[in-house]
Write a protein that binds this DNA or RNA. Structure first.
Length: 208
DNA sequence: GACCAGGCACATC
DNA sequence: GATGTGCATGGT
């Protein structure tokens, strides 16, 4: 007798979420620069606080790489303070814009000419850009078919019977999804957005 | 006043 | 490769 609980495939889980919540049309920023800056600022931080930091940068016309490269660290740190870890994240933003300036003449288009594996490697070489941040940039700014694994993703897996996978390495979790899904940028985008949407819906339920 | 939130680098074993 | 620690704000 099979005593194991039935688990839905990654694709079936997606279809279930999509049926319940519909398309999210999610986009974590107005420009590619804003998406990248947001990806760095949101590390281990609630998005609401990232929005405050982004708003500060926008107000000071600093929501672009050229400005961030030129202004002093203390100034950036002050503006992104609401996002937490502001000294570290200032260094991370500086590291990214310096790489872009040094290797691509400050041009995101030039950086994004790289093929996905080479681009991912290049992003991971930037201090402060780990796998999740790199993949967020790849999916949401460079529009590559890459699955983003974050805390929401792991909780989602655990909640649907995949506790072991949820606790596995970053690349293992990503492989779990990519092996079962078509390589589709829009699908990966929607999937991640739906996981976040579901988590927020459940949080609201718990709070009531 | 704990506890948590869309990580990452670095040290150590 | 696994585990532990520092980094910091703002909401619940």
């Amino acid at each position: 007798m099979n005593r194991k609980k039935q688990r839905l495939s990654a694709l079936k889980l997606y279809e279930t979420l999509y049926a319940q919540y519909g398309p999210q049309g999610w986009w974590p920023g107005r420009t590619r620069a804003e998406i990248i800056i947001g990806a760095i600022l949101t590390q281990n931080t609630a998005w609401i606080n990232v929005e405050k930091a982004i708003a500060n940068l926008r107000r000071h016309r600093a929501l672009n790489f050229e400005t961030l490269r030129k202004i002093p660290r203390a100034q950036i740190a002050e503006w992104i303070r609401p996002a937490g870890y502001f000294n570290q994240k200032t260094g991370y933003l500086k590291a990214f814009v310096q790489m872009l300036h040094r290797d691509c003449d400050g041009s995101l288009n030039r950086l994004f000419k790289l093929e996905t594996p080479a681009l991912r490697k290049k992003l991971l070489a930037v201090k402060g850009t780990g796998p999740e941040t790199a993949d967020s940039i790849l999916l949401y700014a460079a529009k590559r078919p890459v699955f983003v694994v974050d805390a929401y993703t792991r909780r989602f897996l655990a909640a649907h019977g995949y506790k072991k996978t949820a606790a596995a390495s970053y690349d293992s979790v990503a492989a779990f999804f990519t092996a079962q899904l078509p390589e589709d940028v829009q699908l990966f985008n929607e999937y991640h957005a739906l996981i976040v949407r579901r988590a927020k819906a459940q949080k609201r339920t718990r709070a009531e």
